[in-house]
């Protein structure tokens, strides 16, 4: 070998295997591990908020109980179902790619995207209701229906936790749109679908975080 080297492509695609990997599978394996490490890091990011939640709730459970009544269980429940369904469609799109059915795979990605969009629309209605009612972060909190302690703290936590989660949903929508576009273009087949696979891993985590947020914020009342 001299300075330049041959370029290898994954079978049936235009994806060049980077020179530091031995094979397409080697790259797939490394990328998946990279995403898992990233997810560990994401969990720790959210964990700081969960710790704050646990601490403030332990300090004033009565206030948390009362404040949680101000959240709309039905909207939260609807969003839970929507996100769970989107995890299914996301998993299906990977499954279809593994069987080289790119058409079905891209349909599933569209469904996933629409679910995410529905989630954000519901979230928009929930947020605007809270803004109008004065259920805001501690300093700007003006709602007068809760007499216990500092209910502003609960809504600070609510906005921080669902806000950070919502940001993850938005980023996920962007990534899903991008892999959908690449699927349509025919970049992927049963030998190469790494971007869709790691997007799916990320999307399942976004779903998982919501599975924790929903009962902790909506259902304690």
């Amino acid at each position: 070998m001299s300075g330049h080297h041959e370029v290898h492509y994954v079978e049936g695609t235009k994806h060049a295997i980077p020179h530091h990997f031995n094979s397409g599978y080697h790259e797939f394996d490394a990328s998946k591990m990279g995403m898992w490490v990233f997810l560990v890091n994401e969990i720790l990011l959210f964990s700081a908020l969960f710790v704050a939640y646990a601490m403030f709730r332990a300090k004033d459970p009565v206030m948390f109980h009362e404040a949680s009544h101000q959240l709309n269980k039905w909207m939260g429940g609807l969003n839970t179902i929507v996100l769970l369904f989107s995890s299914l469609t996301m998993a299906l799109s990977v499954g279809y790619l593994q069987r080289n059915n790119t058409k079905r795979a891209s349909q599933m990605l569209i469904l996933t995207f629409l679910c995410a969009a529905t989630f954000m629309v519901v979230k928009y209605f929930e947020y605007s209701h809270k803004f109008h009612a004065g259920l805001l972060t501690a300093k700007f909190y003006t709602f007068e229906g809760i007499s216990a302690g500092h209910p502003g703290l609960f809504f600070s936590l609510y906005f921080m936790m669902t806000g950070l989660h919502g940001l993850h949903v938005l980023i996920g929508m962007g990534v899903i749109a991008w892999v959908w576009w690449r699927t349509r273009r025919g970049d992927f087949n049963e030998h190469y679908f790494t971007p869709v696979e790691v997007t799916a891993l990320y999307w399942h985590l976004v779903d998982l975080v919501w599975i924790f947020l929903f009962p902790l914020l909506y259902l304690i009342g």
């Binding site: 300093k139 502003g152 703290l153 600070s156 906005f159 921080m160």
Partner: peptide
């Protein structure tokens, strides 16, 4: 920015 009050 938003006065979330966690540390105040």
């Amino acid at each position: 920015v938003f006065g979330i009050g966690f540390f105040d």
